Amino acid sequence: MKKIAIAAAIAALSAPVFAQSSVTLWGRINTSVESIKTGNRDRVASVINNNSRLGFKGTEDLGSGLKASFALEHGLNSDDGRQTDVNANGTARAFWNREASVQLSGDFGAVRLGRWTPGSYYATADYVSMHNHDTGTSEDKLYSGAGFTQTNKVGYFTPNVSGFNAEFALHAGEGVDPRGYDVALNYDQGPLHLGAGYSKQGDANQWAIRGLYELGAFTFGGYAQREDDSRSLGKDKRWIGRAAVMYTMGQSEFHLNVGGTKAGGSSFNSGRNGGKQYTLAYNYNLSKRTKLYAFYTAVDATTANKVDDLNSFALGIRHNF
């Protein structure tokens, strides 16, 4: 009886702690059917994964405004069910290839350790990619990843003060690659949304600014990026830019965005070429979590013989859970 009483007492004491903890399974399945033409090849019909993912996140309330949390996010191929393809250098991607982090937060902001996508990207190029979350064949092909580091990071996130917030992250090279750092600044208040980002690793760095303004049914946005990467072929510095507009009407969204850059730098096939990209898209929101979409995207590159050209007509479904 004493053992039962002690066990009951421990359970009673533990119950409030468990009640303040939570773990959530979440994700996105985003798949399209497309007619794609690349370079001088024949047009082909394809089923395309648009950065689908599966994740777990959890939070524990530690009291006095202090919280501990974690995030694990896996990128998967929704077209064939496999793990996301290999990296550009041919190495296998990590299973938790989108995020694996632990965080402590409070009135002071938040401190995070692990792997996650740099805030400089979310503050600029991703924010402007309104039509399909910068994914799949219609992703921003021009944005530079110079100084772009995801792994082995320590980051600090400021509290939101009157619409302002910032992220500062350091990358530990661990004797394998150069140390790096990433800075992101955001302002979101009313119809005006501004952002800036800077990243540097070794000899590669980039900075960008972003603006977005909501005017009734219209949303206008754009970013400008300056890339400096002495490792690349040709010119080591160049400007990259994109402008985007969205018009909403009921459950429908109409999108147009245009981007361009000159040859050089590290982005867009290792500096071999410059180019322009055009995307025209339509989204129909069945709910807050599910939408149908269609788009046409085209890349007009300066590479000889249209080697890096691309255009695609797509119909797709995106579902968040």
Rank of each mutant, 00 (worst) to 15 (best):
F218G: 00
G119A: 08
G119S: 06
A304N: 10
N97C: 06
H193N: 14
S230H: 01
G221L: 09
K200T: 04
G180S: 07
A243C: 05
L54M: 09
W26D: 11
N269R: 12
L286V: 14
L142N: 02
G271N: 13
N132R: 07
G109R: 03
T248Q: 12
N51M: 06
R242F: 02
T290S: 09
N77P: 03
N89M: 10
A184R: 01
V128S: 03
R93G: 12
K57L: 11
P16E: 05
Y296C: 09
Y187A: 02
R41P: 01
D107Q: 12
G260R: 12
G114S: 05
S129P: 02
M246V: 14
A204T: 05
D203L: 07
L292R: 03
S252P: 02
L286T: 08
G136C: 10
N165M: 02
I209H: 01
Y296M: 09
G202K: 04
A169M: 09
Y223W: 13
G106P: 01
E214L: 10
L62M: 11
V161W: 13
V102C: 07
G163I: 08
T261Y: 05
V245C: 03
S312E: 10
V86E: 12
A68F: 08
L72Q: 03
V47P: 00
G197N: 02
G114Y: 03
